[in-house]
Design a binder for these strands. Structure first.
Lengths: 106, 106
DNA sequence: GCCTGAAGTTTGTGCTGCAAACCTGTTTGC
DNA sequence: GCAAACAGGTTTGCAGCACAAACTTCAGGC
């Protein structure tokens, strides 16, 4: 017995720098395409692609693949959940910042 | 050639949830001991210990080991650098939050 | 002198972020 | 018209690291 796990305070899925940037950028728009996101976040294609895949698997974003001018075009948007989660995350960061002494003691 | 690396935007050493909490708590005090930090951050001893070691190696904190009442007592404080870095980090998070479209374009 | 507990440290491992290689369709040169 | 370059992504390989469990050491009880 004992205390096995650290508090699940900040969600690493969202907290990860690349994805935090991604979600934050997405939260300011309705949707955005791959190339825009790449420029906005500074991520490489490969990393952007895998972060997006992860976010999609967690259902925080939806991904639509189309062809525009005969070129592949990947359009990404936050889901409702995604929008909530990124907002929550920033709130949690806020409370951490204003000192979240969160003793496990009761 | 090509673009090998993603922008070194957020320092993972500090951004990591446990260490972010740790540094933030430390930034509100002059110094704190191991047990206090454990309760304040909710980390397990093991993880707290290794995070502290890493922060110390990066010279963001100083660690002093004493005996108080014949018991080991580990006292931790931010270095000047550490204090700067955590402040910076929060600023960077702020700018990310207010939309950091940071196109690599010039 | 042995057991319990407090205060840390070390170890093992599974995940996962990163960069490089690869893929697929489309222009562009010639 | 066909090969090379390019645009837009995806897949792969590996190295680093966060986490939890096991171990350590010393202090009192009993």
């Amino acid at each position: 017995m004992s205390a096995p796990s650290d508090g699940p305070i900040l969600d690493r899925l969202i907290h990860e720098p690349g994805r935090l940037a991604l979600m934050t950028v997405l939260s300011t728009v309705e949707s955005a395409d791959f190339v825009f996101l790449q420029r906005a976040t500074g991520l490489t294609k490969g990393n952007l692609s895998s972060h997006l895949t992860k976010l999609a698997e967690a259902e925080l974003v939806t991904i639509e693949k189309r062809f525009v001018h005969r070129k592949p075009n990947t359009n990404v948007a936050l889901t409702t959940t995604g929008r909530e989660r990124i907002a929550q995350h920033w709130e949690q960061l806020d409370s951490l910042r204003n000192f979240s002494a969160r003793p496990r003691s009761e």
